[in-house]
Amino acid sequence: MVPLPIAGGGTEQYELGTPVTVDPSLTGSEPPKSRACFAAPHVVADPRSGGDTGIDAVDWERTLAFREHLWSHGLGVAEAMDTAQRGMGLTWPHAKQLISLSADAAQGRPIVAGAATDQLPETDRHSLNAIAAAYIEQCQYIEECGAVPVVMASRAMAATASSPADYVNVYGQVLAEVSGPVLLHWLGEAFDTQLSGYWGSTGHDGAADALLEVIALAPDKIDGVKISILDADRETALRSRMPAGVRVYTGDDYNYADLIRGDTHGASDALLGAFNPMARIAGAALRALDDDDVASYDSLLLPTVPLSRKIFAAPTQYYKTGIVFLAYVNGHQDHFRMIRGMETTRSVMHLAEIVRLADRAGVFDDIEEAARRIRSIMATYGVA
């Protein structure tokens, strides 16, 4: 039993259930064959170092161990993305180290990594050529490390660009310099309000047109596009417009189960922060699809959707707190602390509902240990 707050100021004693039992035939470290799938991992802070900041240092051992956890369930690693607090505490120097260490650890296992423009000072405005040069620097570093670049949405780009042509200009320069393949990334403003109007349009339709214009510059260098706009219908429509051989990687943490399952017209691959706390279940569900066992896929993955929707509830940019909370509860780190103290961005009521939904989805691996850790966190909020 664990104490959880309830509306009106009371407390309930909640009894945790049992973990989801996965058919042994659906387990293992081999990547699924029917879909390409990457999970975006977080970074583990080290609260005992970092000088006066205390929690701005990274615990590299625990951070890399979590990547091993994802690979062990057949998921690829999408390194140094927004789940790793890129743009919310993780600087480019730290991201460089993270990418290098993870790429070395990959040893041939699937890894992509975020290329952004965050070496440019956010307080300044930058020319389009400077933004392109920043992208190229990061892409080339990632390629040298042996990973595939994900050309992330850039705050500098959003602040400077005034039309779709500006995006075509910058991304064209980048595509001309990379070896390929790369992924492009359309991150909606729900995840980052500073990205409003990305691709040079305030509407999704115009943005999609600009994105397709960029892809047409060098489709042979583009493996796919990660779509994180939380609009399943628009993602499906965009998927139908992609050139042959260019994938759509869903980043829709609300509707991923349906989008990955797909329909008669196709399916999305996956690059998701949502798979971070549910790697065991996600890996098994995707292997079920390899066997065309849609019933097992649905029974495993559909119960995780309410949990993900709660984790990614508005304000969506604070979803990392729920991700790290579950990593702590599931025994992947020794504390619930985040870079720059981001663990404070969600309320105890929010965390309590994550516990209930995670329990119903069966994502807790060791119920007794999870209960002990939940009680510890709740005690810090005065819930006992």
Rank of each mutant, 00 (worst) to 15 (best):
T53W: 15
P93L: 06
A36Q: 13
G322P: 04
A103N: 04
T91L: 05
T316S: 08
D56I: 08
G331Q: 06
T250D: 05
P3Q: 04
R247L: 03
F191E: 03
A379P: 07
T160Q: 10
R155K: 15
P32D: 11
T123E: 12
T193P: 09
L326P: 02
G224T: 11
G273K: 06
D291M: 15
H73P: 07
M378V: 00
Y381F: 12
V174M: 09
D223G: 11
A285N: 02
D365Q: 09
R337D: 14
A116I: 14
T236K: 11
W186V: 06
W92M: 10
P164K: 01
Q85R: 14
M278W: 11
P315H: 13
S268K: 09
A65Y: 10
D56W: 14
R109D: 01
R346C: 02
D359P: 03
G331M: 00
S49I: 07
G50R: 05
E61W: 08
D293F: 05
C139K: 04
R356M: 03
D334C: 05
P47F: 04
G54L: 08
R155H: 06
D118Q: 14
F364S: 05
H94K: 12
L230G: 09
I6D: 09
T63W: 07
E122C: 12
A176F: 10
T193N: 09
T83C: 12
A156R: 11
E15N: 08
P93E: 01
P277D: 07
G200K: 01
L212R: 14
F275K: 01
R280I: 02
P32A: 15
S347T: 15
D290M: 04
P93W: 02
R62N: 12
V178M: 01
D298G: 02
S240L: 11
G331A: 01
V225W: 01
H350W: 10
C145A: 15
W186I: 10
G8A: 00
P181R: 01
G74W: 00
W92I: 15
V383T: 12
A106Q: 03
A80H: 00
M152Q: 13
K320W: 14
G114L: 08
V150F: 04
A274Y: 05
A270M: 10
Q119W: 08
H69T: 12
Y256K: 07
W92S: 12
K221Q: 05
Q107D: 14
A207C: 09
T345Y: 11
I377E: 10
V246N: 04
A327V: 03
A237D: 15
E143A: 00
Y254R: 14
I323D: 09
D233H: 08
P93A: 04
A352M: 03
G203R: 08
V294E: 13
E61K: 14
K310G: 06
D231Q: 07
D269V: 00
Y167C: 12
R356K: 12
G251S: 11
P121V: 08
D292H: 10
A207N: 03
M338Q: 14
I227A: 12
H73N: 13
E79P: 03
D56E: 08
L26T: 05
V324R: 10
A270Y: 02
G180M: 13
A158C: 13
